[in-house]
Computed example of a mutant assay.
Amino acid sequence: MLPSQEKIVALPQLLAKVEEWRGQGQKIVFTNGCFDIVHVGHVDYLERARLLGDKLVVGLNTDQSVSRLKGPTRPLQDEMSRIRVMASFWFVDAVVLFDQETPLELITALGPDVLVKGDDYALENIVGHEVVLARGGAAKTIPLVKGYSTSQVVAKILGEKP
């Protein structure tokens, strides 16, 4: 098994890893997304998220949840492709799939020290922020790289204006 594949975990494995990391005094950062076509905006965002703690856990939407959120033509890449790409980044320590409409159940089970989303979210609109704050953690936003989104990439490929 390749090292990046070892970062792809199911929830029970993830919870065991997080318990181990916490036992070592490490700060856990969590974020989530579809990450359908990875671009520089994603890379910048994820790397900055990792700098907020010692371990970065990424919750990745399943194919079915991406379709529910983005429509029947998405995702463009299947979940196994997307999860493998996420796991290949040095700044991502674990990746777990979730199929719910939001990552609230995952955040509640995980109890991250820091919950992160892009600055296109207001802090009070970040799903799970109440759970993290109640545990003494923090919810933060990270500035997004302007002009980069999967929707814009798709529009450019199709020769459409985004």
Score class of each variant (00 low, 15 high):
Glu124Ile: 02
Pro143Gln: 14
Ala138Ser: 07
Pro143Ile: 12
Gln100Glu: 15
Ala109Lys: 09
Thr102Tyr: 03
Ile142Lys: 07
Lys117Ile: 03
Leu144Asn: 06
Val116Glu: 08
Thr141Gly: 07
Gly136Ala: 05
Thr102Leu: 02
Lys140Trp: 10
Lys140Ala: 15
Tyr121Trp: 14
Ala109Glu: 12
Tyr148Met: 11
Asn125Arg: 10
Pro103Ile: 15
Lys117Tyr: 07
Ala134Lys: 14
Asp113Ala: 10
Thr102Met: 06
Glu124Gly: 03
Ala134Arg: 13
Glu130Lys: 15
Leu106Ile: 14
Val132Cys: 04
Glu105Leu: 15
Ala138Ile: 14
Val132Pro: 00
Asp99Asn: 13
Asp99Thr: 11
Leu110Phe: 12
Tyr148Cys: 13
Lys117Gln: 13
Asp99Trp: 07
Ala122Arg: 12
Gly137Lys: 01
Pro143Met: 15
Lys146Ile: 11
Ile107Ser: 09
Asn125Glu: 13
Glu130Val: 00
Leu110Thr: 02
Gly128Leu: 12
Glu101Arg: 08
Asp119Tyr: 09
Glu101Met: 05
Ile107Thr: 03
Thr108Ile: 13
Lys140Tyr: 10
Asp99Leu: 00
Leu133Met: 12
Ser149Ile: 05
Leu123Cys: 02
Glu124Pro: 00
Gln100Met: 03
Leu110Ala: 04
Ala122Trp: 02
Gly137Arg: 01
Leu104Met: 12
Thr150Cys: 04
Tyr121Ala: 12
Arg135Pro: 09
Ser149Lys: 04
Leu110Asn: 00
Pro103Lys: 03
Thr102Arg: 09
Leu106Gln: 03
Gly128Ile: 09
Val145Ser: 01
Leu104Cys: 11
Thr141Asp: 08
His129Ala: 04
Pro143Thr: 14
Gly147Cys: 12
Val127Asn: 10
Thr141Phe: 00
Val114Lys: 06
Phe98Lys: 03
Phe98Trp: 06
Gly111Thr: 11
Lys117His: 09
Arg135Asp: 05
Leu123Tyr: 01
Gly111Lys: 15
Pro103Phe: 14
Tyr121Glu: 08
Val145Glu: 00
Glu105Ile: 13
Gly147Asp: 07
Gln100Pro: 01
Val132Ser: 02
Arg135Met: 11
Leu115Cys: 08
Glu130Trp: 05
Glu130Thr: 09
Phe98Glu: 01
Tyr121Leu: 05
Ala109Phe: 12
Leu104Gln: 06
Gly147Glu: 05
Ile126Asn: 06
Ile126Asp: 10
Gly147Thr: 09
Val131Gly: 00
Ile107Met: 11
Glu105Lys: 12
His129Ile: 01
Thr150Gly: 02
Glu124Ser: 12
Lys117Leu: 05
Leu133Asn: 03
Ser149Asp: 03
Thr102Lys: 06
Thr102Cys: 10
Ala138Val: 13
Glu124Met: 09
Asp119Ile: 09
